[in-house]
Computed example of a mutant assay.
Amino acid sequence: MAKKELFGLCPYVTSQKVLTGKWSLYILYILSQETLRFNELQRRMPEEMTHTTLSRQLKTLEEEGLIVRKEYAQIPPKVEYQLSEIGKKFKKVLDVLGEWGEEYICYLNSQKTDC
C-alpha cells in the first residue's frame, strides 16, 4: 500500500517541507526585521554561510512564496529581499520560537547558572 502524501493536507508536514532549508528560519527572522539587499543579508549570516548557499536558500524561500525578491533596473544592479504577505504571518511563529529558544538555552545552561 502506498503511503499517503500529506503535503498540502497536514499543516505540520506542509510547514516542515516548506521550511526544510538549514538556514530558512534564520533568514526569515532577519528579514522579519527589515528589507535587505543580498550582501547585507549575507553579512548577518554565520561565517560558514557561503554565497551559493544563501542564494540557493533565498531562491527556495521565494519559490515557496515566503519572501519577495525585488530587482531594480539600475546599474549597478540592486536586489532587495523582504517577507511576502504569507511570510509576514510567520512572524508570530518566529517570536514564539525565539522565546522557546531562550528558554532552551537557559535549560542547557542551568547546570552553570540560574536563569
Rank of each mutant, 00 (worst) to 15 (best):
A2W: 00
K3V: 04
K4L: 13
K4G: 00
F7M: 01
F7L: 04
F7K: 03
G8F: 06
C10G: 02
Y12M: 09
Y12E: 12
Y12F: 14
Q16Y: 11
V18H: 00
V18L: 15
L19N: 11
T20M: 07
T20Q: 09
G21N: 10
G21K: 04
K22V: 11
W23V: 02
W23N: 13
S24F: 11
L25V: 10
Y26L: 14
Y26F: 13
L28G: 10
Y29M: 10
I30D: 00
I30V: 15
S32V: 07
Q33T: 12
Q33G: 04
T35H: 03
R37C: 09
R37G: 15
F38W: 04
F38T: 01
L41K: 03
Q42K: 15
Q42W: 08
R43M: 07
R43K: 14
R43C: 01
R43D: 04
R44N: 04
M45Y: 07
M45G: 02
M45P: 01
M45I: 04
M45C: 09
P46V: 09
P46T: 09
E47F: 05
E47V: 11
E48V: 08
E48S: 10
T50P: 01
T52D: 02
T53G: 06
T53I: 08
T53H: 07
L54P: 04
L54E: 03
S55L: 09
S55H: 06
S55F: 01
Q57S: 12
Q57C: 09
Q57P: 01
L58I: 05
K59M: 05
K59A: 09
K59D: 11
T60D: 10
E63P: 00
E63H: 03
E64V: 12
G65D: 05
L66A: 05
L66D: 06
L66E: 05
L66Q: 02
I67C: 02
R69M: 09
E71C: 01
E71A: 06
E71Y: 02
E71T: 11
A73D: 13
Q74F: 01
I75F: 01
P77K: 13
K78R: 13
K78W: 10
V79A: 03
E80I: 07
Q82Y: 04
Q82N: 07
Q82G: 13
Q82K: 11
L83D: 05
S84F: 09
S84Y: 08
S84H: 08
E85S: 13
E85Y: 09
G87W: 08
G87I: 08
K88C: 12
K89I: 05
K89M: 09
F90G: 04
F90I: 13
V93G: 02
D95Q: 15
V96K: 08
L97S: 07
L97K: 00
G98R: 08
W100K: 11
E102G: 07
E102N: 14
E102I: 14
E103V: 06
I105R: 03
I105N: 05
I105F: 07
C106K: 15
C106D: 14
L108G: 05
N109C: 10
N109L: 15
S110D: 12
Q111W: 08
Q111H: 14
Q111N: 12
Q111K: 13
K112I: 15
K112V: 14
T113V: 14
D114L: 14
D114H: 13
C115F: 11
